[in-house]
Amino acid sequence: MLLEPGFLIVQTLNGLQLSMLLFLLSIGLSVVFGMMNFINLAHGTLYMVGAYLALSTVRWFDSFWVALALAPLGVALIGALFYAVLLRHMQRQSPMRQVLVTFGLIFVGFDAVRMVWGVLPHTIPVPETLAGRVYVLGEVYPAYRLFIIAIGLAVLAALYAGLERTRLGAVVRAGVDDRTMVAALGIDVERAFFLVFCLGCWLAGLAGVVSAPVFSIFPGMDMSILILTLIVVVVGGPGSLKGAVIGSLVIGMVDTYGQVVAPEFARVTIYALMAAVLLVRPHGLFPVRRTH
């Protein structure tokens, strides 16, 4: 069964789909951590809020595409608000405090969505244009899941271009290398960081919206994906696009194949992989190279 081409094609596409979701979630977390050594454990909560905002938008406007446009913006706005009120003051604090405060936000988010949307799971329908199935190398596969992969690849291309070709991208890369030196060049690193943080929130919201038609939406849906996302950041090495991409692909594939090949060992495989990577390369597979 394992070596049947049909099985391999479908599972690889499933793995790719999970990888792309993980990429959307991990890139923001990774760059924010790389720039400011700031750990936002509530990143998964933003993903959950994205899915719920999509749910409400679909109910009001009866359109997935309106939700796709609006819900990530809403999440970015919430992120900006939290940054201004709370997180801005947390940056100079010890990592332990950051962990505690953002860990607390997970529970705040959990209770907030429970109060607004209730405890029962919800789903939103797959948009009509993507409701069909398509043939991929002779295998039948849902079109919507290919759409998730396409969104991930499009975001990857856009982020690559943004990081490598724009001045803000250069400021971000420089900030990951040495943020004091960036400030010494007259650049307000904090402002650049704020923009990156909001973009990261937007991407987490986007991941929530696109996964809403596939997974069910419920309070606590953020936890399992948060753990996978953190593992991606650790395995890939924080601060780099390359690390987030490779980390997402490795974890997405291992998790997907693990679930079907040896479901009883699936999560163990992921943790064992992370431990192995940390033993061999303590700073992840693609650590940001520092000149000093």
Binding site: R167, A170, V171, R173, A174, V176, D177, D178, T180, M181, V182, A184, L185, G186, I187, V288, R289, R290, T291
Partner: peptide
């Protein structure tokens, strides 16, 4: 204070 991931040109246009 040289940035590992920036080119010479980017260093000189950053400010």
């Amino acid at each position: 204070g040289i940035f590992a991931s920036l080119t010479v040109h980017e260093h000189l246009t950053l400010a």
